[in-house]
Every structure is written in C-alpha cells, then in structure tokens.
C-alpha cells in the first residue's frame, strides 16, 4: 500500500533558482494493482519514485509505503521495496551470484535463507547457466534478468519500476512486462513509471498523468479516454498535457 499527501520536491539550481520537480502529489496505490505514472521525460516521475524509495527527501507533504513513513521510517521503507530501472547497472566485475549475495546481505537476509533465495531467483529467471560469469560479459537481456532477480530477492511487498523497458528490444520488453503482470497476481503493490502508452494500457489499473511535476489527471485508462473524448490513451495524454499541433510544449 502506498499513500502520498501533497508530496512535493523542490531543487535549488544555481542558475534557475528554485525548481519545483514534484508539486503536491496526492495518490494511492493498493496491493494487487498497478499504478501507472505517465509523463514526458523530465515530468517528475523519477523524482516522485526517488522520494518514495527514500533516497531523496520531500520538501513538503508526506507519504507512507507499506505503512511506513518515508521520512521517519526510511530504513523500513527501503526494506519493503524493490526498485528496478533499465538505467540501473550491475557490478561488472562481480558474477550474478555475487551480486545477488551482496544485495541479500545488504537486505539483511540471514545466510541459510539467502542461499535458498538466490537459488530460487536464479532458477526462476534462468540465470544458472551464466551465474558464474562476470556481469560485464553478459548480454543486455541477461543483465536485465539479473536485475529483476535482484529486485525481488528479498520478496518485497512493494515494487517500483522506472521505465524498465527503455532501451530493450521487443522480446526483452515482453519478458519484463510478463514479470510485472506476475508480481501483480502475487498481490504486490506496483508503481510503473513510463512514457510508453501501450505498456500503460496493457499493465496499469490506474494511471496518473504527471506534467511539470503536477498530477494533471488520474483514473483508469478507459476513464481517461472517456473524460478527454479520445480514441486512444495517446490522444488523451496529449490533450491532458495541452499539446497543440505545431506549438511546442514548454
């Protein structure tokens, strides 16, 4: 379960002064459902996820992840989440097993259990055949599988996906989406951040459209299309963010 109330984040930039990256976002995500965050590049989606994963602190508002406050109970929040993005790299000079064991230790999984969990995730994602090769030598698909295994190693109840298919080919993207669908059926709370409409339509139960750090609209995909009298989510999205043909958005 995730609940945010007026969550905001301002950065101070030397040239631009105060920049509001996220402004007063109030949202909730429930177990067994996928909340989609849809927005252009730089809309504030990643900043929102970074606040929820406690690596940056909000300048206003509050949020609870799995019942824990993101500011006062940050360690418990981090223990409850799994975070995955395509930009997240692996340690090139470690093997997949070593990466998994490392993160297992950081997540405080005790040794006999850790061994079982590592074996389970390796089998689940077919990592065994290249488990002892260095991550630097793996293909993009193999790396992505190790990344997914790392994300769910500690079996977190909440999962964040930040543009997880960006830069992946069709087959690999399919793999990732199937995994997201699977964790949904396991009753986990999922926040899925993307700018790819087809992924949102396929995966998300609710969608929040973020533009310039503000949630411009929120609802089920069908509701958004209906509300903005659009045949597709893409059309609805463009209307929400105020796109006009020939006029650039700021």
């Amino acid at each position: 379960m995730i609940e945010t109330h007026g969550l905001s984040k301002e950065f101070v930039d030397g040239k631009r002064g105060k920049v509001a990256a996220v402004q007063s976002v109030t949202l909730s995500a429930t177990p067994g459902r996928i909340l989609g965050l849809l927005g252009r590049n730089g809309a504030g989606k990643s900043t929102f996820l970074r606040m929820l994963s406690t690596v940056i602190k909000p300048t206003a508002g509050s949020a609870k992840v799995n019942g824990f406050d993101i500011v006062t109970q940050s360690e418990q929040v981090r223990a409850s989440i799994g975070f995955m993005s395509t930009s997240t790299a692996l340690y090139g000079r470690l093997t997949p097993v070593e990466v998994l064991e490392y993160f297992g230790a950081l997540y405080g999984i005790p040794q006999p259990e850790l061994k079982n969990r590592v074996e389970y995730v390796m089998k689940r994602f077919g990592i065994e055949s290249y488990a002892d090769g260095l991550c630097d030598k793996l293909s993009t698909g193999q790396k992505q599988r190790v990344n997914i295994a790392r994300t769910i190693l500690h079996d977190p109840p909440v999962l964040f996906f930040d543009e997880p298919t960006s830069g992946l080919d069709v087959v690999m993207s399919q793999d990732v989406m199937e995994f997201v669908e699977e964790v949904k059926t396991q009753g986990k709370t999922v926040v899925y951040c993307t700018h790819i409409m087809s992924e949102v339509e396929r995966l998300c139960d609710e969608v929040a459209v973020i533009h310039d750090g503000i949630v411009c609209d929120f609802g089920m995909v069908s509701a958004l299309k209906e509300r903005h009298q659009s045949n597709s989510l893409e059309q609805a999205f463009l209307k929400i963010v105020g796109y006009q043909r020939g006029v650039s958005l700021k």
Binding site: F83, T88, G92, Y107
Partner: peptide, 14 residues
Amino acid sequence: ERQTLETLLISPTS
C-alpha cells in the same frame, strides 16, 4: 557514473 549507487542507496543498509 556506472549507475549502481542508486540501487545501493535503496537497500535498507544505512
């Protein structure tokens, strides 16, 4: 630079 720090900081370790 290699974008491994964020994953590390998201772990519950202080």
